[in-house]
Design a protein around this nucleic acid. Structure first.
Lengths: 184, 184
DNA sequence: AAGACCATGTAACCAGTTACATGATTAG
DNA sequence: CTAATCATGTAACTGGTTACATGGTCTT
């Protein structure tokens, strides 16, 4: 998965591993968690498979850069991946797995846990909102506004998802509180 | 993650690897994809860590069963995991990663892809709905209805999520169609 | 002087996936 | 007789995580 994500970013323009990490960290974290070591490893793999090439750029003073660019074979691979919606995977939801066994916690603790989840997701939502306003100014510069439409759609998903989770947390807390009163 | 999920199921009552798989496949697939080989491996790990024990039950004719049960150490581990909501991970969303690069597809193809996503999620939603009605009868038998409340909450998430994705798909298709008309 | 930012990775590990392998019983 | 269900796994691989490692520049 990450492999193709990197390939996609390279298809926009050439980048270093560091720059790719930045994009994932600052802009795409709502859809994918990437970590440095994996990014560098995948870049190596991409090169080995002939999907990307590397150009070393020497810098005065600063450490050298390795700028990666996508190859023709890489573009083909990317396009075929981007159009393949067969056997799509459903995500795993760690919070659900945990909350499924929430019945073994004291109710106060369960409530606190859910409120923490909510808080984290609200924070996420706010970050995304900030990101979106940055994106707007960036989109104006972009030549291909067809791409931008799809960026918006994914961001819209992220925003909606954060809200959905927060609302669900509220319902959960309400329900636990109600059951607590009934047991009095 | 799966390790603790299995431990949780064992905390309700003893089970074989096969029975654990059944639960994941039939009831928990909306929150976690488990596959057979991993389940058996994790059961082995659980045993090696002293969190579970195994009893071999010989069956006449049929192949032997290995029934796993949770140990005291296992219960402690489970409880501490179930209450730990620090550094919770956000899920990765493969569809988003893909759709982010949807701009490189012909619009008709992109629309078809999203409609496929919608269809798959609607199907999921219907499966869940069926599951929920089964769960209701099962819950009646259960002694501890505190647990059942948490099962409901996770199922409610699943249902809501399926609906959320389907609605989002509709909005995406609409948007692409609108942009197609503008470009005429 | 301290901390953020730029820039690169390796090694070991853990978790999840795919493919392969076997074999009996039971229901249609 | 065929397919589904019960029941167990191993091996190899892929993908993601954690910890470790280095070192310069630029800003406060």
């Amino acid at each position: 998965m990450l492999k193709h994500g990197i390939l996609g970013l390279l298809s926009y323009y050439d980048r270093t591993g560091y720059e790719i990490m930045e994009v994932f960290k600052n802009s795409l974290s709502f859809m994918w968690n990437a970590n440095t070591s994996q990014v560098y490893r995948e870049l190596q793999n991409l090169k080995d498979s002939g999907f990307a090439q590397v150009t070393v750029i020497e810098q005065d003073g600063k450490p050298n850069k390795k700028v990666y660019s996508i190859t023709e074979a890489g573009r083909e691979e990317l396009l075929q991946w981007a159009g393949d919606y067969e056997n799509l995977k459903f995500p795993n939801f760690p919070i659900l797995m945990k909350l499924f066994f929430g019945g073994m916690l004291p109710k106060e603790e369960a409530i606190a846990a859910i409120q923490k989840v909510k808080q984290v997701y609200c924070e996420r939502g706010r970050e995304l909102e900030k990101l979106l306003s940055c994106l707007d100014s960036y989109k104006a510069e972009t030549e291909n506004r067809n791409y931008a439409m799809f960026w918006d759609m994914t961001a819209d998903f992220g925003r909606g998802y954060a809200r959905f989770v927060a609302d669900w947390c509220d319902r959960c807390v309400e329900q636990i509180e109600k059951s607590r009163e009934e047991n009095k």
